[in-house]
């Protein structure tokens, strides 16, 4: 019994950590640079699908299935999502800030459509199954399998965290914050805001793709339904709860929000009669939406928040 609990705990934490990776990607885009991405689900989906197509064994009714190692899949997924983010960013970052939001929303709709309709490549509504899982040789022992996967995911989060922390402290990260706080001053110092923003958006998109790939390999099955707009909402809620601008906050927020989500979903399926479950699930989403607005209104810095820099002391917010 207690072993089952540990195995479940490992599964839960591993899932939460895949969301933490998405959250870290969003934190580069929003927390450090102020770029609003409404298409997180799209970049995650691109990463997951590219990785799945690269690593699954050859299948007769579907194009691709290259049977490559999982690491290649992770890398390919991250690169593909990064390229997609670069295209969207190059198109919109020089324009008004909310054009990027609208364009990423469009990307989310379009990627969902492509995943559903490009059946020969993506398996259509049925998705792709039999994605190789890391440590598959341990699959006979659920506990060892779960812990090994948890260790892998924790290592991924740790490496990303250290790298991003380093990046944020580096001159590059300082420029990003300077641009966010006062674009004109940064420009006067010879920094080109558009180029830096585009780099941040691309890196963030690539990390989201990596998260998608990692999640796909962990679960072993992907379908278009995993990448609905609700995923974007969840990741946003995670970052806002944890505190945007702070990488530790991003990870913490992911674990807390995923915990609340998983617990309330379990409560819904345990206590609500089956015919009312769809309604209860809708109410669960209302909660996330209202919660997001409440945090924006009441505690915009989130649980942890960013340590305020000197620049913000005399800030004049630009619209």
């Amino acid at each position: 019994m207690s072993l089952d609990l540990v195995a479940y705990g490992a599964f839960f934490l591993t899932m939460a950590l895949t969301y933490a990776v998405m959250c870290l990607g969003l934190n580069i885009q929003w927390g450090q640079t102020g770029l609003f991405n409404v298409g997180i689900a799209a970049f995650v989906a691109i990463g997951a699908y590219v990785s799945a197509i690269l690593t699954t064994p050859d299948t007769p009714d579907r194009l691709g299935g290259f049977d490559l190692p999982i690491a290649v899949g992770w890398l390919g997924g991250a690169c593909a999502a990064g390229v997609a983010a670069w295209f969207v960013g190059a198109l919109t970052i020089r324009l008004r800030s909310d054009y990027l939001a609208i364009a990423t929303f469009g990307v989310a709709v379009t990627v969902q459509l492509c995943v559903l309709n490009l059946q020969p490549l993506t398996g259509g509504p049925f998705g792709i199954g039999f994605i190789p899982r890391p440590f598959n040789s341990l699959a006979g022992d659920p506990l060892a399998f779960g812990l090994a996967n948890l260790a892998l995911m924790a290592a991924l989060v740790l490496v990303l965290y250290l790298a991003l922390q380093h990046l944020a402290k580096s001159p590059w990260g300082r420029v990003l914050r300077a641009i966010r706080e006062d674009e004109v001053a940064a420009q006067a110092l010879g920094k080109r805001p558009i180029r830096f923003r585009l780099q941040a958006f691309t890196i963030g998109g690539a990390i989201m793709g990596l998260a998608g790939a990692a999640q796909g390999h962990f679960i072993g099955f992907i379908a278009p339904d995993n990448y609905l707009p609700i995923l974007t909402f969840q990741v946003w809620a995670m970052l806002i709860v944890g505190g945007s601008g702070n990488n530790r906050g991003a990870i913490l927020g992911a674990i807390i929000v995923w915990g609340i989500w998983a617990l309330s979903a379990a409560a819904v399926s345990a206590f609500v009669p089956p015919e009312q479950q769809a309604r209860a699930a809708a109410l669960q989403i209302v909660m996330i939406g209202v919660g997001l607005c409440l945090i924006l209104l009441l505690r915009p810095r989130g649980l942890v928040g960013e340590r305020r820099s000197m620049l913000s002391l005399g800030r004049g917010r630009k619209s």
Partner: peptide
Amino acid sequence: GGAVIILVMASFGASLA
């Protein structure tokens, strides 16, 4: 008097709810 993008985000949350 926050940034415009906070309003966009709030509208995003409101639409979900």
